[in-house]
Design a protein around this nucleic acid. Structure first.
Length: 86
DNA sequence: AATGAGGCCCTAA
DNA sequence: ATTAGGGCCTCAT
């Protein structure tokens, strides 16, 4: 658990419902604007294993939902639902 | 505008 | 300690 990972998890946890941030944004807030790659990796491992973080609210800068540990489809559904509920 | 190839940052083995 | 992988991003064609 590096400082960066903590930061990333913290930032992602602070993402309000119905709001989505890009990996780039998260990485930037985490302190490493070029670590967007690591962000995905961290969310993939840590979130699914121990920490409960709305990693599905993190999407690509292209507007695509990107991938998802539990299935990219699920991510899209979650995002749509949250967006509607927001 | 869309597609292809390259590179940086992190974690896990 | 090094190698490989990844939910990516950006530049070039």
């Amino acid at each position: 658990m590096s400082k960066f990972s903590e930061r990333v998890l913290s930032v992602v946890s602070k993402i309000p419902r119905g709001r989505t941030l890009t990996y780039k944004e998260v990485a930037r807030r985490a302190g490493s604007p070029r670590a967007f790659r690591a962000v995905g990796n961290i969310l993939n491992s840590y979130d699914s294993k121990k920490m409960k973080v709305p990693c599905h609210r993190v999407i690509r800068s292209d507007g695509q939902s990107g991938g998802y540990r539990w299935g990219a489809r699920k991510k899209l559904i979650l995002l749509k639902k949250e967006r509607a509920a927001a």
